[in-house]
């Protein structure tokens, strides 16, 4: 799978099943975009437990903060995102304050189906206007999909008025061929299942203009020879105990990982038409920034961005 088209994208939506490392990939991807001279915003979506802070080494707020040359980061937290949206919808600051001061309207906004999703998408779209590239660390894939899907369902609900207009604008942003979903998967059955499900739904609803990218994270490329496998099996069956068994277990561990990688790559490849990009595990579980650096270097290889250009990380 060729990742170079990512360097022309305006909006990259990173998601994946929980625990796949999507935040790390979002950050690495943003670093690569910036390294290639693009003014880039790395964005997370109302996370109560900010995940970007340790990666960028500072507190990420609603107002974009500078991380490195050409790279900024923002956290679309509530209620700031809502305030920005209201300003856009009703124009006047005083009216916005009246709305926010009214308990009934507050509850209404909390309750209107999809309003939070619309407000968030709208904020993302505004950033797309201001940067060369926006990389968003979306919620886990199930929630991420409903976030995008709101642009479809909202049209049936809001049949006139500025909200409808805005929904139509958001659809245009999503349908741009330079808007793409970046899915992070792991070589595990459940994760691959969920990734395939997300791909199927994306295709069915044709929400995004660009074709999706899939990376298989923590994937050890297969390297055991047939003879080595045979010998590993014989040794495992020989009834060895203690330290010997522990060495064999370590070996079987890596063999099982290799097989899981082959299987995951095969299943994803069948749907994508090309094999997914494999990203090997970081050398020993390091600090978050070390893992991010490793991921950026690996992705950079597929995007033609050499390691030395990734100065800030």
């Amino acid at each position: 799978m060729d990742l170079t088209p990512l360097l022309d994208d305006r909006l990259v939506l990173v998601t994946g099943k929980g625990g796949t490392g999507k935040t790390t990939f979002a950050a690495a991807l943003a670093a690569l975009q910036a390294a290639r001279g693009r003014r880039t915003l790395l964005c997370e979506v109302d996370s109560q437990r900010p995940a970007l802070d340790p990666l960028v080494g500072r507190e990420v707020t609603f107002a974009p903060v500078r991380v490195a040359d050409r790279l900024e980061a923002a956290n679309l937290v509530w209620p700031e995102t809502l305030v920005a949206w209201l300003k856009r919808m009703v124009g006047m600051e005083r009216i916005v304050r009246a709305i926010l001061g009214n308990d009934m309207v507050q509850r209404f906004l909390d309750f209107v189906p999809g309003s939070q999703e619309l407000v968030t998408l709208s904020a993302i779209a505004e950033h797309v206007e201001r940067y060369d590239c926006v990389v968003v660390d979306l919620p886990a894939s199930g929630h991420a999909f409903s976030l995008l899907d709101i642009t479809r369902s909202a049209l049936g609900l809001f049949r006139a008025g500025p909200v409808r207009e805005r929904v139509l604008q958001l659809r245009t942003v999503l349908e741009d061929p330079r808007t793409r979903m970046f899915l992070v998967a792991l070589p595990e059955e459940m994760v691959v299942n969920e990734t395939l499900e997300t791909l199927a739904r994306l295709r069915e609803h044709a929400l995004l203009g660009g074709s999706p990218v899939v990376v298989l994270n923590r994937a050890i490329p297969p390297s055991l020879t047939d003879d080595e496998r045979t010998l590993l099996e014989r040794l495992s069956a020989a009834g060895l105990v203690g330290d010997a068994e522990e060495f064999l277990e370590a070996g079987r561990w890596e063999r099982a990982s290799e097989e899981a990688v082959a299987e995951a790559a095969f299943r994803l490849g069948q749907v994508l038409g090309v094999p997914p990009v494999l990203v090997p595990p970081a050398p020993a579980a390091g600090r978050e920034r070390d893992v991010m650096r490793h991921v950026a270097v690996q992705l950079g290889r597929h995007m033609g961005v050499p390691r030395q250009e990734l100065a800030w990380i």
């Binding site: 009216i95 709305i99 309207v105 006139a160 008025g161």
Partner: peptide, 13 residues
């Protein structure tokens, strides 16, 4: 505020 909501979200909604 009620009229405002009607304007923003559409009266049908």
């Amino acid at each position: 505020l009620f009229r405002l909501l009607g304007y923003v979200f559409g009266k049908e909604f």
